[in-house]
Design a protein around this nucleic acid. Sequence first.
DNA 1: AATTAGGCGACTGATTTTGTCGGGTATTCA
DNA 2: TGAATACCCGACAAAATCAGTCGCCTAATT
Lengths: 160, 160
Amino acid sequence: MKLGTKGRYAVMALVDLAGHSNGQPVSLADIAERQNISLSYLEQLFGRLRRNNLVKSVRGPGGGYLLQRGTAHTRIADVVLAVDENLRATRCTPGSPVGCAQDSSRCLTHDLWEELGNHIYMFLSSVTIQDVLDRRVLGAARSRTTAGPLEGARPDSVAL
Amino acid sequence: MKLGTKGRYAVMALVDLAGHSNGQPVSLADIAERQNISLSYLEQLFGRLRRNNLVKSVRGPGGGYLLQRGTAHTRIADVVLAVDENLRATRCTPGSPVGCAQDSSRCLTHDLWEELGNHIYMFLSSVTIQDVLDRRVLGAARSRTTAGPLEGARPDSVAL
DNA sequence: AATTAGGCGACTGATTTTGTCGGGTATTCA
DNA sequence: TGAATACCCGACAAAATCAGTCGCCTAATT
Ligand code: FES
Ligand code: FES
């Protein structure tokens, strides 16, 4: 399991984007300056966000990025997964037959890591950009966490 | 946030230790062979575990390690923190005045990461070595998670 | 045509992680 | 006493990952 600057920057950038957009596209240069992140790095991140259908790009002068789904429907988990690729905590790869244990079966700790990953995913799924924008993370999110993600299951790369 | 092989190996080793000890010390060489982990690496890890009062060492022939607290009182969170040092997800250092935001106050996402860290810690605190040994991770742990850690608060390095 | 701003891939330096090595020290047993 | 066992410890090296840069391109607006 890892959570580096990629995931953090992506969330920060999207929150900034959501906060400064009034229906108009927001340029990366603006976000870069406000959030103190390198422009080239942001471009890299937004490339992945775009490919994951989280943002929409508008080219040319006056262009920039827009959130594809609304602020209330963009889950933090999706953002992190888009740029950080996996939250998986298990050592064994899901498809492969041989895990970290030498025999065929799963090792004793497998379930533990898997459940940990589930937990993290649930939490991050329960928080939206809008929640962060409203500083509504502590109370609201926690109460919703026990109920699981809002709606719609992730298709792949979730297993954790 | 990070969770590397150090944390995973440490938990695997302690579970193995708990499972193969009958009051007698278990040597690292045995664990190393069973779990397929380098002996030298294990020594490094157990050094930290010992310094964190999770295991007790017995030197000399027939020596090895014992769990200091019982299997039911050794929390996974303590093990991971002992070898992996921190689960903290925030970018800013807790003591320092300046976080990742340029102005003095916390950035919008600070609460999010902090709350994520809390969540992870709560989950890992709710599971003990005994739970893993009994493959009792999925149901039992989750039900207890909402109630928080078993007892006794961590003194420091927890903030995450 | 000129300017703006996204799109893409390769590349590099720094840091972290993972794991090894070599040489100790304490304890037991013969 | 001394040999064997097994913990103890710090330094070190290979490998992987991360963070960030660079150059050049394409699309749209004016
Ligand atoms: S983590 Fe999947 S088998 Fe060990
Ligand atoms: S994470 Fe603490 S101020 Fe941004």
